[in-house]
Simulated scan of single mutants.
Amino acid sequence: MAHEYDKLVRDRIPEIIEADGETPVIHAAEGTEYERRLREKLDEEIAEFYEDGRIEELADVLEVVYALCDLKGVSAERLEAIRAEKAEERGGFEERIVLDRVE
């Protein structure tokens, strides 16, 4: 029985499928297709985190973020430096402030 997925998957998924006795039909995404599929994957992983709130889903989100950084030529260390700069300039979320309105 064939199952259609048409989505970006982790590198070892094809071998896991083969180990289950099935045959994956795959291709490598290039250029704009790869970036588009990473963005779709990010949406998918965020939706999964919204659905169940598990920390493993946040790890999946982070994996996609790192892949996007790699695509853009930005290291995880540079991403962290940018995050820290923004936190220094604008703050984080520790105080849980909700802006209701500005009058």
Score class of each variant (00 low, 15 high):
M1F: 07
M1P: 06
A2E: 01
H3G: 00
H3L: 01
E4N: 01
E4F: 04
Y5Q: 00
L8F: 03
L8A: 02
L8I: 01
V9D: 06
R10L: 08
I13C: 01
I13T: 02
P14V: 03
E15G: 04
I16M: 06
I17Q: 04
E18T: 10
E18Q: 11
A19S: 14
A19F: 07
A19Y: 06
T23A: 10
T23W: 04
V25G: 11
I26M: 13
H27L: 06
H27F: 12
A28I: 15
A28L: 12
A29I: 00
E30N: 07
G31P: 14
G31T: 15
G31R: 14
E33K: 03
E33F: 13
E33S: 04
E33P: 04
E35G: 03
E35M: 08
R36P: 02
R36W: 06
L38D: 08
E40W: 03
D43Q: 13
D43K: 11
E44L: 05
E44I: 07
E45Q: 10
I46L: 05
A47I: 03
E48R: 01
E48Y: 03
E48Q: 06
F49N: 03
F49W: 06
D52S: 04
D52C: 10
D52Q: 07
G53P: 05
G53L: 10
G53R: 12
R54N: 06
I55F: 05
E56S: 14
E56L: 09
E57Q: 09
L58T: 06
L58W: 05
A59Q: 04
A59T: 07
D60L: 08
V61C: 13
V61T: 01
V61A: 01
L62D: 14
V64A: 00
V65P: 05
Y66D: 02
Y66H: 02
A67N: 02
A67Q: 00
C69Q: 11
C69M: 04
C69F: 02
C69A: 08
D70R: 02
D70H: 02
D70M: 03
D70L: 09
D70S: 05
L71F: 14
K72V: 00
K72R: 08
K72I: 00
K72F: 04
G73Y: 09
V74M: 10
E77D: 12
E77L: 12
R78E: 12
R78G: 01
A81K: 08
A84L: 10
E85L: 08
A87F: 11
A87L: 08
A87M: 10
E88F: 13
E88Q: 14
E89S: 06
E89G: 05
R90V: 10
R90I: 05
R90C: 08
G91D: 11
G92Q: 13
F93K: 11
E94H: 06
E94F: 11
R96K: 15
R96V: 11
V98F: 15
V98G: 13
V98H: 15
L99C: 12
D100G: 15
D100S: 15
R101W: 09
R101E: 13
V102N: 09
E103Q: 04
